[in-house]
């Protein structure tokens, strides 16, 4: 396959960026999208040009490091991560536009690499159960209904890639935040901090400069792990209840 790539190149956080065109030949349909970029990078390096910087690590779709907007869609046309997207989903002669995640809370650092530290800070604000090592009771002391465990798991699958934010027309991190709020809120272990958790996490989310939710559903459509849209409703429910109850103090 021969392709024309239009890739966002930006030398640094403060520098101007632009879409740059590259022609790449001999792309195998069995390559993953990232392997296709590897191939491009090797060709660039051999010519003495600087390779395209992009985040990636596990390449199995679970670490959440990779993420780029491919032809206007977060992670590209398939519902998976960019590392698990294969070139067979493109046709010979296609032009593919590759851009970084765009959101005010995700400043571009270089080329396709953005700073997603805001997501870590949202977790730090309350996305945990306070259970210092050594203080845990026997695991079977508190049974958890299977249904709750399943719902918790479904939300805990979030890989923190940021596709929801990138896909949202408002750059909102509601689905990311909701996934953690619901995961921990569903479990009895997370119940004592349920109110303070949602207030603190939402507070941090707002502080980081993410937009609000207009319920467009773009996030859930882009989510490679299928975190469901109703999780946002569940977080809203938790939030409003926490406000009613005076904020968990």
């Amino acid at each position: 396959m021969n392709l024309r790539l239009r890739i966002w190149r930006q030398p640094g956080p403060a520098a101007e960026g632009a879409l740059t065109s590259y022609d790449i030949t001999g792309v195998s349909p069995d390559m993953s999208f990232l392997e296709m970029l590897d191939t491009l990078n090797e060709q660039l390096a051999e010519r003495g040009e600087e390779p395209v910087a992009f985040d990636h690590d596990c390449r199995e779709g679970v670490c959440g490091a990779c993420g780029m907007v491919i032809n206007g869609q977060a992670h590209g046309p398939e519902r998976t991560t960019a590392c698990q997207l294969h070139m067979r989903h493109f046709a010979d002669g296609d032009t593919i536009v590759v851009e970084p995640w765009r959101a005010a809370a995700f400043p571009v650092l270089r080329d396709l690499v953005v700073d997603r530290g805001a997501l870590d800070r949202i977790i730090g604000a309350g996305g945990y159960v306070t259970a210092p090592t050594g203080s845990a009771p026997e695991a079977h002391a508190t049974p958890v209904p299977k249904e709750s465990a399943e719902t918790a798991f479904e939300n805990a699958e979030c890989i923190g890639c940021g596709a929801c934010v990138a896909a949202c027309p408002n750059g909102s991190a509601m689905l990311f935040t909701a996934a953690k709020v619901v995961h921990l809120g569903e479990l009895p272990q997370g119940a004592p901090e349920r109110d303070s958790r949602v207030l603190d996490m939402v507070g941090q989310m707002d502080t980081e400069g993410f937009g609000g939710c207009t319920n467009t559903g773009e996030c859930a459509t882009a989510c490679p792990k299928g975190v469901p849209l109703p999780s946002i409703a569940a977080m809203n429910r938790d939030y409003l209840r926490a406000v009613r109850r005076g904020g968990g103090r």
């Binding site: 845990a136 026997e138 508190t142 049974p143 465990a149 995961h183 272990q189």
Partner: peptide, 19 residues
Amino acid sequence: IDQCVAQGVPFAREYGGLL
């Protein structure tokens, strides 16, 4: 296992709610 359950790790469970 105790530690991870206390942290909210969603291990697979049986219908009775046990691990």
